[in-house]
């Protein structure tokens, strides 16, 4: 009996520091405060129930994010997201990514609002991988574990996602520039 409550405390110690990252990720997936809260709560409940299946010493963070993501994908919003976004064939796009300097600078110099909108507009499959890599600073291997896909897929989705972001922001900048030019005319 003591063992059971010790286990509960162990879970608490591991899970509570992840609360903000999990919630942040949930918000970016759902775009809804209440839904994100429910998602995190359900994730914690599921994780605690399944905690015995978690191997101590392995990556707890990846395990939690995986549960959260799977829970999301079976929710109504998640199912819609899955249906509405056809993923490109999982080939190695990274090999064909080309570098165009103005496009690259567009992302680096984008305003926070523009970047926020561009991230939100990204198809979920790309948004999640960019968030896990850049915001959660996970290694490719860890992301592969969360998404349950090979590392090559992580890399190609990442390259594609970032490319889409760059294109969106470069387009946005052109749009603003055109608008200003029109004003001057």
């Amino acid at each position: 009996m003591k063992a059971a409550s010790d286990r509960g405390r162990e879970f608490e110690n591991l899970a509570l520091p992840l609360l903000d990252p999990l919630y942040n990720f949930a918000r970016w997936l759902t775009y809804d405060t209440a839904e994100a809260e429910d998602l995190v709560q359900e994730t914690c409940a599921k994780a605690l129930r399944g905690f015995d299946a978690f191997t101590p010493g392995t990556d707890f963070r990846a395990w939690m994010f995986r549960i959260l993501r799977n829970t999301f994908l079976t929710s109504r919003t998640g199912l819609q997201a899955k249906l509405t976004v056809p993923l490109d064939p999982e080939d190695e796009v990274s090999a064909t990514v080309t570098w165009e300097t103005p496009e690259m600078l567009a992302l680096a110099s984008a305003t926070r609002e523009a970047l926020q909108d561009a991230l939100a507009a990204l198809p979920p499959a790309y948004r999640e991988v960019v968030l896990l890599c850049d915001v959660e600073e996970m290694k490719y291997a860890e992301i592969a574990e969360v998404l349950q896909v090979p590392i090559g897929t992580v890399m190609s989705r990442l390259a594609r996602g970032r490319k889409l972001l760059r294109e969106a922001l470069a387009g946005e900048r052109d749009f603003v520039a055109r608008k200003e030019a029109n004003k001057r005319r």
């Binding site: 609360l19 942040n24 918000r27 690259m104 992302l107 970047l115 926020q116 968030l131």
Partner: peptide, 20 residues
């Protein structure tokens, strides 16, 4: 350089919500 700046910008923007 541009990629590194972009990564930093995404991190700043993406770290947005705190658990209530």
């Amino acid at each position: 350089l541009a990629l590194a700046e972009a990564k930093r910008a995404i991190r700043r923007t993406g770290r947005r919500y705190l658990a209530p």
